[in-house]
Deep mutational scan, measured.
Amino acid sequence: VLKALERTRQLDIPDEKTMPVLMKLLEEAGGNWSYIKLDNYTALVDAIYSVED
């Protein structure tokens, strides 16, 4: 979780936006981090930006 938060902080995305999206992605992935961690957490960042749209 810390590495995911560090990555999104680099992009000026607050933890308050990151955590709900991260928890949803983890739930959808059955707790499997490998998809979320791919390409420096690209799936997480993309999911956060899609929620903002």
Rank of each mutant, 00 (worst) to 15 (best):
Y49L: 14
R9K: 04
T18I: 06
E27G: 09
S50N: 12
W33Q: 00
K3R: 11
N32D: 15
E6M: 12
V51C: 10
P14Q: 05
L25G: 01
A29P: 02
E27A: 13
N40H: 07
E6W: 07
L38N: 11
T8N: 01
K3T: 08
I48D: 01
A4T: 04
S50V: 09
R7F: 13
L38Y: 12
A43H: 09
P14M: 05
D46Q: 15
T42P: 01
R7D: 03
L25R: 01
V21T: 06
L2W: 08
V51N: 12
V45N: 00
Q10L: 12
Y49P: 03
E6V: 08
D46Y: 11
D46G: 08
L44G: 00
I48N: 01
K24M: 10
V21S: 04
G31Y: 13
P14S: 08
I48M: 06
Y49C: 10
M23L: 13
N40F: 06
T8C: 14
A4H: 03
A29N: 14
W33T: 00
V45R: 04
L25Q: 01
Y35M: 13
Y41P: 00
L26D: 01
L38R: 14
E52I: 14
N32C: 09
R9M: 04
A43P: 12
D39R: 10
A4N: 03
M23G: 03
R7M: 07
N40I: 05
K3F: 04
D15V: 04
A47Q: 06
D46H: 14
G31V: 05
G30E: 11
Q10R: 08
I48G: 02
D15C: 06
S50W: 09
L26T: 00
K24T: 07
L38T: 09
R7H: 08
E16R: 08
S34Y: 15
D12Q: 14
P14Y: 04
A29W: 15
G30A: 09
D39A: 09
P14F: 05
L5C: 07
D53F: 14
L26A: 01
L2I: 13
I36N: 01
T8R: 03
V45L: 13
D53Y: 14
V45I: 15
M23T: 07
P20M: 13
N40M: 06
A47E: 06
L5H: 02
S50H: 11
E52W: 15
E16L: 07
R7S: 05
S34G: 12
L38C: 07
L5R: 01
V51D: 11
V1E: 06
E27P: 00
L2K: 13
R7T: 07
W33I: 04
E16Q: 09
S50I: 10
I13K: 01
G31S: 06
P20S: 11
E28H: 09
L26H: 00
N32P: 02
E28I: 12
D12A: 13
L11Q: 04
L2F: 09
E27L: 11
A47H: 06
P20G: 09
T18V: 15
I36E: 01
A47I: 04
L22Y: 00
W33R: 00
R9V: 03
L38S: 11
S50Y: 10
L44P: 00
M19R: 04
E28L: 11
D15K: 02
M23E: 07
Y49D: 06
E16I: 09
V21L: 07
K37V: 15
I36F: 03
T8L: 09
E6Y: 09
T8E: 02
K3D: 15
K3M: 11
P14G: 05
K24Y: 07
A47Y: 06
T18D: 03
E52R: 10
R9Q: 05
D53A: 15
W33K: 00
D39V: 05
L26C: 05
V51G: 12
L38W: 11
L2P: 08
M23V: 08
V45C: 03
K37W: 12
V21F: 06
S50M: 12
L22F: 01
K37F: 11
W33S: 00
V45T: 06
A4F: 05
T18M: 07
L5V: 03
Q10N: 08
S34P: 04
G31R: 04
L38M: 14
Y35C: 10
E16T: 10
E16M: 08
R7Q: 06
N40L: 06
M23C: 10
M23D: 05
L44W: 03
L11N: 04
K3W: 05
K17F: 08
K17H: 08
L26F: 05
T18H: 03
V21C: 06
T42K: 15
V45W: 04
